[in-house]
């Protein structure tokens, strides 16, 4: 079953076409990475899924319910976190979380205290005086309050130090183990590769590819990786050229695949 289903989604801002016939699916209990450079359309697609903005055309469904700016009910099962999640700076972390807990109709003071302890977060500190890391911890708690069935994360670890990032990833994995579906966009490709089992590549508002982790590995397995010194490298290159065998000096990881889609190399190879 698909938790997110998007079909031929279009959205433009003035003359700029931000999304063009975007279609993809996110399976239940998957961790799907949504990848693309800045301006590719990741945040626009997520904003449509969250009902912040309306699509010009096309359909989007979450939990088989139509997504629209007026359908707020699906949000009871969705947690959302972005890198620049705005919070009320005049409130303390505890007050902020209490407010959002009541909005989510699922406020549990004991659960909040436990999670704050786990994240080493002072609930009495004012949001306005917090570091980026602590601010993001509050935002994460706000997103996780209702134990969402779907967590939408828009570059959630931007600006976080490696320790907080590791803690964050641990929490995501725990949530996934409990059955939640995670849809995450990020520029940190190594992190995405480690977390995700599916990948959607978007470029210039169009879906470039949707691959599973197996697909990604299969693509890697099409290659022979040769480790060699400079002298032998030249010999090997000559041999490959003489025999008209196509080759590239790259590794078969997510980063190389990402670069392939965004440098236009995939099209050239085809």
């Amino acid at each position: 079953m698909n938790v997110i289903s998007v079909k031929k989604l279009n959205k433009s801002f003035g003359t700029k076409q931000a999304l063009s016939d975007v279609s993809f699916e996110v399976a239940e209990n998957s961790i799907t990475g949504f990848l693309g450079p800045n301006g590719a359309g990741k945040s626009t697609a997520m904003n449509i899924l969250l009902g912040f903005i309306a699509a010009d055309d096309g359909k989007a469904r979450i939990f088989d319910e139509k997504v629209s700016v007026s359908n707020h009910k699906i949000h009871k099962d969705i947690g959302f976190l972005s890198s620049n999640m705005a919070l009320d700076k005049t409130l303390t972390a505890g007050q902020e979380i209490e407010y959002f807990g009541h909005l989510a109709k699922n406020y549990d003071a004991q659960k909040v205290a436990d999670l704050a302890k786990k994240l080493d977060l002072d609930l009495n500190q004012k949001i306005g005086s917090m570091s980026t890391g602590n601010h993001q911890k509050v935002a994460l708690m706000v997103a996780l309050l209702a134990e969402p069935k779907l967590l939408i994360l828009d570059e959630p670890t931007n600006g976080l130090d490696p320790l907080v990032q590791a803690e964050f990833n641990k929490i995501i994995m725990q949530l996934h183990a409990k059955g939640s579906t995670i849809f995450i966009s990020s520029h940190v490709l190594s992190e995405i590769e480690e977390l995700c089992d599916n990948f959607i590549f978007i470029r210039d508002g169009k879906i470039a590819a949707q691959l599973s982790k197996d697909d990604l590995h299969r693509k890697s397995q099409d290659k022979i990786v040769v480790e060699t010194n400079a002298k032998n490298k030249a010999k090997i290159q000559k041999f490959l050229r003489d025999n008209k065998i196509k080759f590239a000096e790259e590794s078969g990881d997510l980063e190389s695949t990402f670069m392939k889609y965004y440098s236009g190399k995939e099209e050239r190879d085809a």
Partner: peptide, 15 residues
Amino acid sequence: SSGVLLTQFSKPISR
């Protein structure tokens, strides 16, 4: 302007 509106509308509340 500050973006807090989006955080609130990510919760189940109607506009």
